[in-house]
Amino acid sequence: MSVFGLALLFWLAAWAVNAALARSRWRDASGVRVVVPVLFGAAILGLWEGAVRGFGVSPVILPAPSSVAARFAGETGLLWEDFLQTVLKGALSGYAIGCGAAFLVAVLIDRSRFLTRGLLPVGNFVAALPIVGIAPILVSWFGFDWQSKAAVVVVMVFFPVLVNTVQGLAEASAMQKDLMRTYAASYLQTLLKLRLPAAMPFVFNGLKIATTLALIGAIVAEYFGSPTRGMGFRISTGVGRLDIELVWAEIAVAALTGSAVFGLVSLVERWVTFWHPSQRS
């Protein structure tokens, strides 16, 4: 019980520090903007640890963060093998193929106003559908290995990227296009120098949505059959064997990967669309 009280005290202290920081005159400094959420996260982890230890929760139900971290450190070889199978082979190849295909199709379709008008509502609708359900079908078509996972990812990321790119290509204003025409710019020049750069904020929006979808697709597809490695495989068998610490270690890998890839895409976005108002604040 006292352990939990200690954790609660730590949480309150962290909150007080955060509140003071948020009201102080350094509140807009970049260091503070990082410290506050990190402290908040640490306080939550402390509360979790304290609750598990203080109330003696069985590790089969909810393991403490420290024991998950220990398991993580002890199983890096296994976790790396799963990461290789699910993220690098399944999700990444599917992400590259799906986003690339969607981008090309969007640029091609953009030449026809009729097709654009027809495809936007359809694409928007399909992007909102639970496409993950297609996973068992694709696993039976492409076999158990990473190819079927990549196929699921391709289908899942295609429509969000397509819709966003098509919308982005419509972003350049009539005035800007007229200016290009006064320069006697060809279709290709207008596309490369004006319309694609103007579309980039939208494209990156689609790419960011697609990063999470890619991981979800690759993991769900493994629930329907996979070789004896991969994050989804390890999670479903781990739950069956009540090896909950390993499952949480895999979840941690998935969470870190998701955040890291999202951060990476955001970084590239900042580099590519440095001119956009949302990046200049």
Binding site: T211, T212, G232, A255, S259
Partner: peptide, 14 residues
């Protein structure tokens, strides 16, 4: 924002 980058399916069986 970070919560949405975590693939929820990993958590679903848990």
């Amino acid at each position: 924002i970070i919560s949405q980058t975590v693939p929820i399916v990993a958590l679903a069986p848990m």
